[in-house]
Design a protein around this nucleic acid. Structure first.
Length: 584
DNA sequence: GCCGTTTTCGGCCCGACTGTTTTCAGTCG
């Protein structure tokens, strides 16, 4: 059983307990455990029954949760979850997906009106039975009716790259507002999560009303969800929700810290502050008076707030990069002055996975080389597909050798830049590679990947990949987890076994930077790093512009805590060769 | 349900906004 499955069960228990109105801290414990399990680089199922790695050694998982996880791994079920499911119909849980409907109101609808589905809820609203309930009214009933379609479509998350386009455009639109000072995107966008559910924007201003008026009138804004003195929530064309918050200069840093989150990171931060007699909110860090527990009024008690650095410094911490703010290990690192110096896109010196018009790319060999050189890279590997990928016009030995001859001729004309003779060789359904050994031995760089037989059992696909890692000519595995965002996994892999094979054979794993793929996600990346496996961040570009996606891959690498040293292609090509034990 | 150099009980982050209430609960982030 994989960690995400275990996490999903814990999340479901949290949801059901919350609906029942259980102790909110108990709910939080389950939710927290779900997150912890999801964030573990190692397999939780493997820890079960391993006396050297008890589940309770994970901070936040105690005796009870460890027992429940153990039961799930060993029996495939949890008593508590079965009981809760028997008690609360699954369709009722959908009610809480409606904006503005939380556990309390949803429970009231279920208990008082017997509403068990979105359809039943719609009818109850239309019959004006909802407004009769205590705590409900006419407006609530209308809001519920309007929100039902949103519950049905679930909460769509968009790719970071797509959110980026919205953010760039909104920031530009805000910048022309005379009342607006500094403008900063926050939230999960700033933390670089691979998908984003909504966009948070922070604006510095002494005139919040003017900024909000300006924003509300932007053409892409289609509806207003709420507006107060400092906060405005709108929905854009296309459904994306944007929360705008306007704060004064002296609070800008505190607000940026607060709205960047994550929520769990902030909970830890505020707990830390509390233990130091301080209170953190979006306006700053304040001293709490000794007896009353009340902060001194206004500026008097303010210790920090203008910049994020001040806020963290007031708590005795170095500034923590947003990508690390997930309540994973960042506070432990920060406390010991051991925050990793995260990799940046400028650290990349080469790109080792891309295609040309010879297979399914849109640009020629020469165009790709020129584009990469123009982007400041020192080397690229051309890795077109092998014959098995016939749909992509994969290259057999003859065409491949002709392409490599063309690369030789191109290299003669280039200075300060090298094009490597590479190939993305398919790992065949029955194991083994799609090109003869003597051909592969002539290549400078071979990445191997699975394109067919993706429905095979996990163990079989894992064996194909570990087999490829054992091949002397293979340097790296592309798509080592087969993961595609927002979709079911195309294939499932035992990442632990793949990592062990990579270590055994001294091979590399690729982080594919395609925004829809990012198949070595931040958690898997951290797992590979824990094994000491060098990561290759590759564009898998099919066009000149495709080379630019490495910046999306960099975000995930940063979230995994990767430094320059952890990534192979921050090195020169001759150093990469040495890394593979193929030094000159 | 978890946790503990203010330890085994009593805490557990903090505030904005809405709609309902006439002083606040629920929801959200």
């Amino acid at each position: 059983m994989e960690n995400p499955q275990i996490a999903a069960a814990l999340d479901e228990i949290a949801d059901l307990l919350e609906f029942k109105g259980e102790n909110p801290f108990r709910v939080r414990a389950y939710r927290n455990a779900g997150r912890l399990v999801r964030d573990q680089p190692e397999s939780i199922a493997r820890s079960v029954g391993d006396p050297d790695r008890p589940l309770t050694s994970i901070r936040g998982i105690g005796k009870d949760l460890a027992e429940k996880i153990t039961q799930l791994v060993e029996q495939g079920r949890i008593d508590l979850l079965d009981e809760l499911r028997a008690e609360i119909p699954a369709s009722v849980m959908l009610l809480m997906r409606i904006p503005g409907l939380g556990p309390k109101k949803a429970a009231a609808l279920y208990k008082e009106l017997g509403v068990q589905s979105l359809d039943a809820l719609r009818e109850a609203c239309l019959a004006h039975r909802v407004r009769e309930l205590k705590g409900f009214g006419e407006k609530t009933e209308e809001a519920i009716l309007a929100g039902i379609p949103f519950a049905a479509t679930t909460s769509e998350r968009i790719y970071w790259s797509e959110a980026d386009r919205y953010v760039q455009s909104l920031v530009a639109s805000l910048a022309v507002c005379p009342a607006a000072g500094r403008i900063a995107p926050a939230g999960s966008y700033r933390r670089g999560r691979e998908t984003v559910a909504d966009v948070d924007l922070l604006v510095e201003s002494s005139d919040p009303a003017a900024v909000m008026d300006h924003f509300e009138r932007l053409p892409e804004v289609v509806s207003k969800l709420g507006r107060g003195d400092t906060k405005l929530s709108v929905r854009l064309e296309g459904g994306l929700q944007v929360d705008l918050r306007v704060v004064p200069t002296e609070s800008f840093g505190a607000a940026l810290q607060y709205f960047t989150g994550s929520k769990d990171h902030n909970v830890v931060l505020r707990g830390l502050a509390k233990s130091r007699g301080l209170r953190v909110n979006e306006y700053g860090v304040f001293r709490v008076a000794d007896r009353s527990g009340e902060a001194p009024a206004g500026e008097a008690g303010r210790v920090a707030g203008r910049t994020e650095e001040d806020v963290y410094a007031a708590l005795g911490l170095p500034w923590i990069p947003p990508e690390l703010r997930e309540a994973r290990r960042e506070f432990e690192w920060a406390a010991h002055a051991a925050l990793p110096e995260l990799i940046t896109v400028d650290d990349l010196r080469g790109d080792l996975h891309m295609h040309t018009t010879e297979s399914d790319g849109k640009a020629t060999l020469e165009q790709m080389a020129a584009a990469a050189q123009a982007r400041g890279l020192e080397y690229i590997a051309i890795t077109d597909h092998s014959p098995r990928v016939s749909m992509a016009n994969g290259l057999g030995p003859d065409r491949l050798r002709r392409q490599w001859a063309a690369i030789d001729r191109l290299n003669d004309r280039l200075t300060g830049f090298v094009v490597l003779k590479g190939v993305e060789v398919d790992i065949l359904e029955g194991g083994g590679l799609d090109l003869p050994d003597d051909v592969l031995a002539e290549a400078d760089w071979v990445v191997a990947s699975v394109h067919y037989g993706q429905r095979q059992p996990r163990a079989q696909i894992t064996a194909r990949i570990t087999g490829a890692l054992a091949h002397p000519s293979v340097a790296a595995i592309a798509h080592p987890t087969g993961r595609i965002i927002n979709r079911r996994l195309p294939y499932e892999v035992d990442l632990e076994a793949v990592c062990q094979a990579a270590v055994r054979h001294g091979k590399l794993l690729e982080l594919n930077a395609n925004p829809a793929r990012l198949d070595l996600d931040d958690v898997a990346c951290a797992a590979a790093k824990a094994h000491g496996i060098p990561i290759v961040i590759s564009s898998d570009a099919h066009s000149a512009e495709g080379l630019d996606v490495t910046r999306y891959g960099i975000l995930q690498a940063r979230r995994a805590g990767l430094t320059k040293a952890d990534v192979a292609n921050t090195r020169s090509w001759s150093e990469v060769k040495r890394l593979l034990g193929r030094g000159d």
